[in-house]
Design a protein around this nucleic acid. Structure first.
Lengths: 217, 217
DNA sequence: GTGTGTGAAATTCTTCACAGCG
DNA sequence: CGCTGTGAAGAATTTCACACAC
């Protein structure tokens, strides 16, 4: 029910490890700007809120980061994560739902994820399509299959509950999408398809924290 | 390094279970509007992308949902989750960073999390404080300790990297905050404090999906 | 028959402990 | 010495399997 790695040489990377590697990468970017040259598992662990052993294991999955007895070479580690995870690979993406969050993502895209090219936007509200001022072509949602296929879009970001949202996954799959990020609290039905789905349910996160407060007081 | 339940009677609920319970709750809300009366672990599992056993175990943690041989009573289950997790409890919250995302959250708050009262907003940019048009009082970030304490704010939502963001956690803790949701890619240093922290790193999520695509092709 | 509740098994993930390197 | 790399131990979570209820 969740994604597995099928890459040749590299051992399958567990989900939690993959998630942490992505965060480590972000941290390394941050530090790189400050010119840091060396970084220890202890430090990384502290910043990520996990133990240093954990970090070492994680790094181990992407092959010995060829490191010395005093921390990792920050730049080398960054490159290594980059290569194994393919973070430098350019991909086309589309935004579904051109409300506030959609626009935010489109506008910040270049600084946030420079390797993504947002090639299209979709919305069910046709009025919105005309008045909107953005730098990407926009279409009504029923054109999803066609446009996704034509523009080789691999990744979709659903930013809000557009009309007939339950039809969206099907259309995306028809177009051959490979991954979906869903910011909507709606649980999408992907059937038994092999599309990668990542849910970011903000409302649920609020509930989670609320529950945590309640349970620990 | 992560939060545990310390509630009296109820057995400690594991993190993953708690997270799913919050999602189940959202699902039940959704279904409630449609007047659904009964719901099975199989259906819930399918919607959440996990097996039915898993759901049954999860529900087990909040005490037998007193159910029959044909699914759960949707309304009863909802109320039960609500009570055990304390989801109906009103809490005061504040927003740190009054950029686009901050404004979105403030505006949608009532429909998204009706039990939260956003009592204050903070930003480091004082110009922004004056020009902004929102319905809550706003303050510069150095007033955080004072305002949080005065207004009994339990929860903070950090929406963007404000100036001196590394000082924000300290100030919040000074004010007696209990939980923080961090939408920033910056890894906050909470030291060894007993504050609940939830990171929602959107950039990292994009990387994660990207990596998943890369590893599975 | 369909579906829940739950101990036991299996799996996955984390933590430990220590060898080896700079 | 401090820090990495890693097999082994340990803990947490998921999956299984079956008794029981409708």
């Amino acid at each position: 029910m969740n994604a597995k790695s099928g890459k040749k040489g590299i051992e399958r990377i567990p989900g939690p490890t993959l998630s942490r590697l992505c965060k480590i990468y972000g941290l390394l970017e941050e530090l790189g700007e400050k010119g840091e040259i060396s970084i220890s598992s202890k430090y990384i662990g502290k910043r990520l809120g996990v133990g240093p052993h954990n970090i070492r294991k994680d790094v181990g999955y992407i092959g010995e980061a060829g490191t010395s007895g005093s921390g990792y070479d920050a730049r080398k580690l960054k490159v290594q994560i980059e290569e194994v995870l393919g973070l430098k690979k350019k991909r086309n993406a589309c935004i579904i739902g051109l409300g506030t969050l959609g626009i935010v993502i489109i506008n910040y895209q270049k600084t946030m994820f420079p390797n993504l090219r947002i090639a299209a936007g979709f919305d069910s509200n046709v009025n919105k399509l005309e008045t909107i001022q953005i730098s990407i072509p926009v279409y009504p949602t029923y054109e999803i299959p066609e446009v996704v296929k034509r523009d080789h879009i691999e990744l979709a970001v659903i930013t809000e509950p557009v009309l007939n949202i339950e039809k969206i996954p099907g259309r995306l799959i028809q177009g051959g999408i490979k991954g979906i990020i869903n910011f909507t609290p709606i649980n999408l039905d992907l059937e038994y398809e092999k599309v990668h789905l990542r849910n970011i349910d903000i409302v649920s996160e609020f509930r989670y924290l609320s529950a945590l407060l309640n349970l620990s007081e």
